[in-house]
Nucleic acid binder design. Sequence first.
DNA 1: GGAAAAATGTACTAGACGGTGAGTTCTTGT
DNA 2: ACAAGAACTCACCGTCTAGTACATTTTTCC
Lengths: 220, 220
Amino acid sequence: MNQVSDITPPEETRRGRKNNPEKTREDILQAAIAEFVHHGLAGARVDAIAERTRTSKRMIYYYFHSKEQLYLQVLEKLYGDIRNTERNLHLAELEPREAIRRLVEFSFDHHANNQSFIRIVSIENINHGQFVKQSPTIRTLSRHIVAQLDEVLQRGQAAGVFRPHLNALDVHMLISSFCFYRNSNRHTFGEIFQIDLQHPEVAQRQKAMLCDSVLRYLQA
Amino acid sequence: MNQVSDITPPEETRRGRKNNPEKTREDILQAAIAEFVHHGLAGARVDAIAERTRTSKRMIYYYFHSKEQLYLQVLEKLYGDIRNTERNLHLAELEPREAIRRLVEFSFDHHANNQSFIRIVSIENINHGQFVKQSPTIRTLSRHIVAQLDEVLQRGQAAGVFRPHLNALDVHMLISSFCFYRNSNRHTFGEIFQIDLQHPEVAQRQKAMLCDSVLRYLQA
DNA sequence: GGAAAAATGTACTAGACGGTGAGTTCTTGT
DNA sequence: ACAAGAACTCACCGTCTAGTACATTTTTCC
């Protein structure tokens, strides 16, 4: 008998069409992430997204209806991915100062490892945040980490190691802003000051600085 | 006699054409700033820029040759404006800690008051900084403030009020990142955490926090 | 096995958009 | 006064781009 017709290769090289809605949808979404993250909303081209997929432009509209709705899905996906990994921090188990150190280092690395997230958030702000405003999902997703921080701050205050009158959201911003900016603005900053912010030595030095700066600020 | 024909309004309603190259060029540049800052490079429309001017699209190409070259002029203009106002800080005249406080507060307000600059820099980073790389002007313009900061840090170290081994560029980033982020990301941050970062009370509180955080970090 | 529905392919379109050709009016220098 | 060049107007073009009409194939469900 003919081996070839018996042992057909997984799926792809099979003759004729094979419907696979979930995979097609996911394929499009991943292609869209790449395109939007690289070019922004206005700069992204639906045709270019189509070329990044196994399927056609027609399918993009079949599943996502419009360029803008596709963008919204990309936004929600990237926000969701980021916020979910933030759940495994377990700050409550650590001594307050140790918890802060952990949070700062995590934030620093997390931002560095998620450039797509950084870029989509920048893009969204260029867009005046009009799409985050449309997404109730994103809003609820993001509160978690500030709640965790707040718990640590209160614990530290109760233990007398942190100063009173701290605002968790402000401290969150103090940490996030640095972690975000290093990545979001690395092209202009890097070019102007001729420095490679991705270089491990620079990153290590700046991470330590941020830790220090935050801990000293919180110090009673 | 007819009043209308005697007292002709300044220039605009005068009959016939009136050449005014500098004004036309400046008019276009201002319109371009508004459009690019609002919509980004890819999102900006040359026709929309033309509509914002007294003149026509043809004149945009007459003076600026292409959309991208116009964008580059906008970028250089906004960078130039910002960097020039940074020259009047006179940090060298102040006691080190006072100089830092002055620098932080200035940076904070300066960013808040120059949203166009914030946005064009964000846009440029979305663009992978490809236009800053083309502009030697911008590079040289931006070094000044870090040099000033460096002088203050050295003075503080010599006086024993600041800790050793400080990196001026890192400290500059610590300050700038917060000042920048509060504005660049205010749409997403504001929406997600339901806070108005422009509110004077919030701004005042965060400005004080940043001062404190930086000064405590520098403290010997 | 066959009808209905879901998924996909092909080819196309209307309008937007960056850019220009060619001619006219104004200004400057002599 | 007039030539030459700068500044400006008007109408236009080719291409790109989001989105779609319509036909076809695959899957589901009875």
